[in-house]
Write a protein that binds this DNA or RNA. Structure first.
Lengths: 337, 337
DNA sequence: ATTATTTGTGCAATCGATTGCGAATTTGAG
DNA sequence: CTCAAATTCGCAATCGATTGCACAAATAAT
């Protein structure tokens, strides 16, 4: 049987209340008693029953995290950052993946709510358009932090990366390297992040006095297969692009592999820039220029933010949207000189 | 305020016990009452307080998972598999990373124990030699499942991959392609998995009538940096190897990049095979031959095993070690014809 | 019609820790 | 030495759901 505070109380002729207070460093207990109690608690192998405490205090010291896919490098990095901070600050992290499936996301969020997580960090699914499940949290003032794929309609802390700036700089870079006809393979525009990347691209184009050509802009779900389809389509244009900005590295990879097969040289004939800095981007040939996203930092930030909210529930927070800087990494796929 | 079973009881003139039983589909409650109770519970927006239930029943429906690193593709895949199954079967998953740091692993395991997880799935850290923290679980008969990096000294279900077979087949393949002097860059031998890969390598060498040359075998911690150091050292040998079997893909990558820099051709001059099938292995140039590990499947298996144990705690399980098959993927880095 | 079963519910204890309030003891000021 | 203030601690209620046992009502058996 496990040792409880009552066992300790009996042994020391204290009441259970005193034991509880002593163990929680309550100042109303004298230094002497506190020391004695802690010592014997340790000796007796006491382990607090967290369930009982959570039940009583309505705090679980648990943070729920929902991401679309765990085994995607960016998300894994964010999780890693969250876990690191949470652990240090005495929180446990519960992780689920929605697989970009609304049904699953809906159920996960309900489960986390039922499990009384103290806060929720999430990146919304690709197809999520209904946000009623998140109201479970907002309505009850349970801290909620979005990252990467955020929801405009809901007031909460949001941590995003500078997608617009990333798209802008990637495109600008291509133009500076001599590109005259920059194509873009983007993601679904209902997601802000892809919209922003695309807007950055458009801004760079117009700002440079180039023309926006609709035939050079395609949108899909950015998988390997979709990437190949997109580049095929692009190459059927009468006037070919001389550079392509892809909204993720996976697509950039598809493009590069396809062009290599066709004997078209990257970057000499067509330059390519991706987005996200996947691990493979550095090591493929040619290595892929890309936009680096600080996933781990985002995770740390998200965790710190939500823990701060959890510990200060009485004061209503000023919700802020934090934009993390991105960095253009220039590699072989876009280096001409 | 949240609705409790007492509120429902008052409204329907039942006792709380009846409500509880009805909601749990207890057969002693008549069909009629059960339906009525469930209906009104739903109408009143009742949500069971899982904390209270867990506290009472001592079951949390939570599985703890500890891996060395979350953002490593193999581990992320395993986690993904675990999460998938657990979710379907009504369990929540709590994930932590030890970062191969014993201190952290120790504390994590204690935390998970204190949090009363129903079971623990873990892959041990590189430097873990003391297993007292795991006794928390085994002593109390709390289900424990190891995967990949398992612990011989502890009785539990274990899910491993066929490291020996993988190392054997990788090496055999190199020999079949014409290699006469196959080097090996392996991991720390206190970890079974690396020992087994190396043993597979040794078996293949001797079986083929070749000689084991100690100068061609190096062991390190298999990072990018260590890989580079290792290949440098190998290349200082008087008689150079004509093939290298690396215990992971990261090392294989280091080797390939280094050789490329030095103008040594892969696979013409030296062939390379890695292990794990990281995402980058398929797309680097030359693409890396490797051993594929079924991470997702392992995760599924681990989750099913532990849930079965959790649900059948009364019967003592026959502990088994499940060996998952590996697959040799032949790519450019080792193809000579 | 009477007794024996079965079926459906309620009572009340319980899980272990927390906490408001009040009581007892000690300390300090005058 | 007396009385007020400060310090230290215990009582008992509480959180919400579960469950063994007892009891009442309904049904079946004789």
């Amino acid at each position: 049987m496990e040792v409880t505070i009552h066992d300790i109380a009996k042994k020391l002729n204290f009441s259970a209340s005193t034991i509880s207070r002593a163990l929680n460093n309550n100042l109303t207990i004298s230094e002497a008693s506190r020391k004695l109690i802690k010592k014997t608690a340790a000796e007796m192998g006491y382990r607090p029953n967290i369930l009982a405490a959570s039940f009583r205090t309505k705090r679980t010291n648990t943070i729920g995290v929902v991401v679309p896919l765990i085994n995607r490098h960016f998300f894994a990095s964010v999780i890693s950052g969250i876990e690191e901070v949470a652990y240090k600050r005495g929180f446990t992290v519960t992780i689920s993946q929605s697989k970009d499936n609304f049904e699953k996301e809906y159920k996960i969020v309900h489960t986390l709510f039922s499990n009384r997580v103290d806060g929720l960090i999430l990146s919304i699914g690709m197809n999520t358009a209904d946000f009623s499940h998140l109201k479970l949290f907002t309505d009850r003032n349970i801290p909620l932090v979005f990252f990467d794929r955020v929801v405009d309609e809901i007031e909460a802390h949001k941590i995003v990366i500078d997608d617009f700036g990333g798209g802008y700089r990637a495109t600008k870079h291509l133009i500076k390297q001599g590109a005259k006809r920059v194509a873009h393979i983007g993601g679904p525009l209902n997601l802000k992040i892809y919209k922003n990347r695309q807007d950055g691209y458009l801004k760079a184009i117009t700002e440079s006095g180039l023309e926006i050509e609709k035939s050079l802009i395609l949108n899909n779900s950015l998988t390997r297969v979709d990437g190949t389809l997109a580049i095929k389509k692009l190459m059927q244009n009468k006037k070919l692009p001389d550079a392509i900005f892809c909204a993720n590295d996976t697509t950039a990879l598809s493009v590069i592999i396809y062009l290599k097969e066709k004997g078209i040289k990257v970057p000499e004939d067509i330059m390519v820039v991706g987005f996200s800095n996947e691990p493979f981007s550095e090591v493929v040939t040619p290595s892929i220029s890309t936009i680096k996203q600080p996933g781990f930092l985002m995770g740390e930030k998200a965790a710190n933010l939500i823990i701060h909210q959890i510990n200060n529930k009485e004061i209503k927070p000023e919700f802020e949207t934090i934009t993390m800087p991105t960095e253009l990494i220039i590699r072989e796929s876009s280096r001409r000189k």
